[in-house]
Amino acid sequence: MGEFRHAATVIAIAFVAMLIGPSLLDTYTLTVLIIYGLLALSLGLIWGFGGILCFGQAAFFGLGAYAYAIAAINVGESTVPFLLGIAVPAAFAFVLGAMMFYGRLSDVYLGVITLVVTLILFKFVNSTAGPEYVIGTARLGGFNGVPGFQTLNVPGYPNWYIYDRSFYYFCAVTLLVVYALMRWLIASPFGRIAVAIRENEQRVELMGYDVRFRKTVLFAIGGAIAGLAGTLFASWAEIVTPGLFSLAQSAEVIVWCIVGGLGTLTGPVIGAMILAFLKFLLGQQGQFDSTLILGLILVLSVLFLPRGVVPSIDLLRKRAGLSGRRTAPGRRRRRARSMADV
């Protein structure tokens, strides 16, 4: 039960961090860091454990945010929109995934398709400023985005907003719950087989598993989590804009995962929080261009830290523990070999 203990420790530490957080930083910023963590977790799951490199995680993020915003304007209460914000991107990811995986697309081609789909969504949403683009009572707004929708409220009580600090705790607990669920998923037979598919797709197929279906489901789960992050983001920012679908947003998610460490769940979350915070600090002081620093970090981490921060730390810790053993990880292909050290 080492895994269970490990997960429990992570959750306990995270819980304490959540309580301490507000005394270190304003909750408004903290909340968005958590939301980004959740978004990174979604890609960390499908990429790190399913071997699916998605260039368009922002598509699901944006779709979740838009689904929430548009439904919230129409409904005026946040419960149904909140669920739609998860369901719509999940369904979209399922259809897209089915199209790709049943077509046996892999690797680079998968990357291109997800990227293109993101671009299509961006271009479409960006060109919907006209009055003819309406869903119910909500204008899509094009470049303007959709402002002025109902933000998250206590289910059934539209006037009881979950706002500011309560919203922060809501997001933090959501992240912990999702994390726990995903740990469970990975430890389940479904998760084991997903990892096996990542390692050797053909072999798993020959063993009689329907690889295409399993990958599609995993992809849809990733889409649902990204959509959840988008929903929370919409509530946080109080506006959704086409920029949510941008390539820059997709790129950032990938960077978070790389820097944090693939093949772990905590890695992407920590990567996202650190880098998003760094970007926020750099953006505030305006001395250095934040793009420049982020680019530098990405290049350096690919070259010198190909396994990411969290796995590297784990590795160091292990090596310290097993001092007798000679280890030479060298420059290995990025791919986590074991999932025990999440």
């Binding site: 261009d289 070259l303 420059r331």
Partner: peptide, 30 residues
């Protein structure tokens, strides 16, 4: 400086060059 260490690792080159693209944008802005 960068690419020659990464031949044969398609995804890694993509990521490293992505980083380079951000870096170049930053430098040009500067």
């Amino acid at each position: 400086l960068v690419i020659r260490f990464l031949y044969g690792r398609l995804v890694d080159t993509m990521l490293a060059t992505w980083g380079l693209s951000l870096l170049l944008i930053g430098l040009a802005t500067l």
